[in-house]
């Protein structure tokens, strides 16, 4: 075959592969939305779930998922920023650094159920935190840290050394160069990393079953005292998330309309992740424009 034909064939094969991926995605998302959305009503989002009776909502689960996500990000973003900056900018190129990087890689491929059981044994039992939002958030941090750290490390490494030298040559300190010149440049990549990990966190069930627990005590949304057990802000209460709720409905759910509720809840899960994606990119672009003057 001549070069032109081979080239043409290669392009066709690649197109078919892309097509398969795209079709699969559309089918999955489409199926979830088509089966889930018709069951949906605004009401569904704002009423509490039912253990046995039909007609339960997902109010508390949805809130728990969002609250856990926010807490997990609040803990893991600063930590991974520090770790990522250290690994990319300060760490000497030696065995210890490579060892740490290998550990991070291993940690990031740990099955989430293992992370969940680790959280159960250490946080829930040993540290006596019980099934709680805090246990869940810390477990999610373990789960999230390696990914975010390597995301930030790679983002910084991708900035050319000329930028670092440019900053240093102006008499800026190393830290000032990192903070003022390198980090603003990496904002889009870091945002993408945060969005991806948020999607994972939001949809995570296995790591939370044994840490934040499987029960959702009814919350009183007028109670803003974080120490009260019925307050949505309380971090020491057990909290079933949306993903755990879906899992539970399908495995041991006693609810009569489990199928309908779980289909609807799945659709909500996907929509929230999508919404979060769009929002994060919008904010990321705005932030980038503010920091860099756009392009």
């Amino acid at each position: 075959m001549d070069v032109k034909k081979v080239d043409h064939l290669a392009k066709r094969i690649i197109q078919v592969m892309v097509g398969i991926v795209a079709v699969l995605l559309v089918l999955i998302i489409g199926y979830i939305l088509v089966t889930g959305l018709p069951q949906e009503s605004i009401d569904f989002l704002f009423k509490p779930s039912q253990a046995v009776k039909a007609g339960g909502g997902i109010r508390d689960q949805l809130w728990n998922s969002i609250y856990l996500l926010i807490l997990a990000l609040l803990i893991s973003i600063p930590l991974s920023l520090g770790a990522g900056i250290y690994l990319a900018e300060y760490a000497p190129d030696n065995k210890l650094t490579h060892f740490i990087q290998t550990l991070i890689e291993i940690l990031s491929s740990l099955p989430s159920i293992v992370v969940g059981l680790f959280g159960y044994l250490v946080l829930v039992i040993r540290f006596n935190m019980g099934f709680s939002i805090l246990s869940g958030a810390l477990t999610l941090t373990v789960f999230n840290l390696p990914l975010l750290t390597s995301n930030i490390e790679n983002a910084l490494r991708s900035v050319s050394d000329e930028q670092r030298e440019g900053g240093l040559a102006l008499g800026l300190s190393r830290w000032q160069t990192i903070k003022g010149i390198l980090l603003p440049r990496t904002v889009p990549e870091i945002i993408t990393g945060v969005v991806l990990s948020s999607g994972r966190i939001f949809g995570e069930a296995a790591a939370l079953i044994y840490t934040s627990g499987q029960s959702a005590p009814a919350l009183n949304y007028l109670n803003w005292n974080p120490l009260s057990p019925e307050s949505p802000l309380n971090v020491m209460r057990p909290a079933e998330t949306l993903a755990v709720h879906i899992w539970k409905l399908n495995t041991e759910g006693l609810t009569i309309d489990a199928d309908i509720v779980s289909a609807a809840a799945s659709a909500v899960l996907i929509l929230v992740v999508l919404l979060f994606n769009i929002l994060a990119h919008y904010l990321g672009n705005k932030l980038e424009r503010k920091l860099t003057g756009g392009k």
Partner: peptide, 11 residues
């Protein structure tokens, strides 16, 4: 420097 290295900021 050898290659122009403006920062990703406004002029």
């Amino acid at each position: 420097f050898q290659r122009p290295n403006p920062f990703a900021k406004t002029i």
